[in-house]
Design a binder for these strands. Structure first.
Ligand SMILES: [Mn+2]
Ligand SMILES: [Mn+2]
Ligand SMILES: [Zn+2]
Ligand SMILES: [Zn+2]
Lengths: 138, 138
DNA sequence: ACAGGAAGCGCAATGGTATTGCAAACTAGT
DNA sequence: ACTAGTTTGCAATACCATTGCGCTTCCTGT
């Protein structure tokens, strides 16, 4: 099991340090995207900055992607495999639940083509839908 | 002219104080959305907190809307008229230029319907396109 | 005109997040 | 075991957002 996690790191050219194994293990257990603070609280006595740099490294190497859901804190979630270092390919919709305040990836829901006025060139799109998630609907 | 600005405020049930007149005047002169810091620098010797509360009041009353463009600082822009207190109706696309770092409203470009998985209910959508704006394309 | 009271303003203070510098600890290759 | 490069922990910094509070200003009823 730890070996499995280690392979995931080495495949992305990330040195599998003890801290990074813990971080990836924690990420794998999540059902929604987490913030740095979530991670810090989840991995008890751990330095926030080290965790911050672990996430940054993961993102840089295409293992996780960051999500700006408007909550003020950047969220992180594992990529869908096809991402490479410095090049993310998982441009999907993200959902923020106003009830449980969890942010989820909707990898099946690609972002539609957005028409723009003449002279505007799109390079990146951030689409975040807010509402009530499937767990909070009653 | 000042009378005109004053009317805009009173129509939205906002007390037209000296500070608020200045803020609205400044907003009317902008061609793109501005941050609180932009406003503070634009209106020379003025208290940041007072400006902050002016913008909050304007937003609450449906005169401006706030934009989270991922830059870290909330941007503000005038609404398209049909907005009411506590109820904004200008759900349009926003564009962030990676070159000039200006954020623009694209009021002609409504946000398309985003399909969601079963059980998810959409209440709000934030769509921000990043790229190169018409002024920066060469 | 006067007394209250509400609204607005300026300043201080707080809390949260992101980011960098630096020295100590650690790893890997020789 | 030694050295070079990487990783870590802690301090420090920089913003941004938000609230508390006393003072001023403006409005209103008497
Ligand atoms: Mn995602
Ligand atoms: Mn807008
Ligand atoms: Zn939920
Ligand atoms: Zn531009």
């Amino acid at each position: 099991m730890t070996e499995n996690i280690e392979v995931m790191l080495t495949e992305k050219n990330i040195n599998p340090t003890a801290m990074r194994l813990l971080v990836l293990d924690f990420l794998l257990k999540q059902s929604s995207a987490i913030s740095l603070t979530d991670l810090e609280k989840g991995l008890d006595p751990s330095d926030r900055i080290t965790l911050y740099r672990a996430l940054k490294k993961f993102e840089e190497k295409g293992l996780v992607h960051s999500i700006d859901d408007g909550s003020g804190a950047t969220k992180y979630a594992l990529c869908e495999n096809n991402c490479e270092a410095g090049h993310h390919h998982d441009l999907h919709v993200h959902f923020f639940c106003n009830t449980c305040r969890e942010t989820s990836c909707l990898p099946k829901h690609h972002i539609p083509q957005i028409p723009l006025p003449d002279g505007f060139k799109s390079e990146e799109v951030n689409l975040i839908v807010k509402g009530v998630c499937n767990k909070c609907v009653h």
